[in-house]
Simulated scan of single mutants.
Amino acid sequence: MTVAETAYAKINLALHVRGKREDGYHEIETLFAFVDAGDTLVARPAERDSLTTVGEFAQALDNPFDNLVMRALNALPHPQGLEVTLEKNLPVAAGLGGGSADAGAMFRIIEHYHGLPEDWQLRAERLGADVPSCVRSEMAIGRGTGAELEPVKNDMAGMAVLLVNPRIPLPTGPVFKAWAEIGAEVEGGEDRGPLPKGSARTIALKGRNDLREPAISICPQISDVLEELQRDTPFKFEMSGSGATCFAVYEEPAARDDAAHRIAGAHPEWWQMTGMLR
């Protein structure tokens, strides 16, 4: 039996960096949200595990057999092989948790066939800090490295989303390094305070992305994307994760579609995806 899963694009409606940990990771507080669009995984039983990668961004994966889909598959017990096809629609190194979302979708596929082991959260965390949140792909607050999840009142489900990327890959490591350098130069240092309390709408409106300025220092085109998104006065616009993808959230799909059409006309070279918040 064939099983298909969407690897839902992850966005950070707010992302506060609180400091660097002794283990080298960074302490963050973030509001994870998920768009009802992204990569697609299709699996069917086979004699042995295999992965085929197709789609616009398939070539961006240097070694498709060592990506998070295969690592997730190898991390979970399954008595039969699976032949998996990954349609890579999300840009790589884009702040959308694409690899983590793919891994999360693989966890759900294994769950469909065989169920998940009791320690699946730990197995997911070993693959990456964003992977636990991507398994369920439900809005949540993430703390620690992002793997410590807390529920939040989701009063933004069904809102329209526009994702825009200038087609410039932006690895996370250099952005965090720039965050530390910029933090050393500003009043208050690196830690600018905790995530606001309240519902998703409150956190989204009052929260910030501490990685925005560091990312812009490496990829100035992010400023151009944010400027375009701001013109249509969305409910919220911001950079996601460590960039370079930016998002805008709208109360109505028509407003999102108008913005998407205008921006596509002005910048046909930019990547876009539309969807709704889960």
Rank of each mutant, 00 (worst) to 15 (best):
M1R: 06
V3K: 06
Y8A: 15
A9P: 02
A9R: 08
K10H: 10
K10L: 10
N12Q: 03
G24L: 05
Y25K: 09
H26C: 10
E27W: 09
E27Y: 04
E27I: 04
E29P: 07
T30A: 10
T30F: 12
F32N: 11
G38D: 11
A43K: 02
R48K: 02
D49M: 02
V54M: 05
V54G: 07
E56W: 13
F57N: 05
F57Q: 02
A58I: 01
Q59W: 13
A60I: 09
L61D: 06
N63W: 09
N63K: 11
N63T: 08
P64H: 06
F65H: 15
D66Y: 12
V69F: 01
Q80F: 15
V84G: 00
K88G: 10
N89M: 06
G95N: 10
G98S: 06
G98Q: 05
G99D: 02
M106W: 10
H112V: 08
W120S: 03
E125F: 11
R126H: 04
G128W: 11
D130R: 12
S133I: 05
V135Q: 00
T145Y: 09
G146E: 00
E150Q: 12
M159F: 04
N165Q: 02
P166E: 05
P171N: 13
P171Y: 12
T172I: 11
G173D: 14
I182K: 14
V186A: 09
G188E: 02
E190Q: 14
D191K: 08
R192K: 13
S199K: 13
A200S: 15
L205D: 14
K206M: 15
N209G: 06
D210M: 03
D210R: 04
P214D: 03
S217N: 09
I218N: 05
I218V: 07
I222D: 03
I222S: 00
V225L: 06
Q230K: 14
D232N: 15
F235T: 15
K236R: 14
G241S: 07
G243P: 02
A244R: 07
A244F: 01
C246N: 09
A248R: 13
A248E: 11
Y250P: 03
E252S: 01
A255T: 14
D257T: 05
A260V: 03
R262E: 06
L277G: 13
R278H: 12
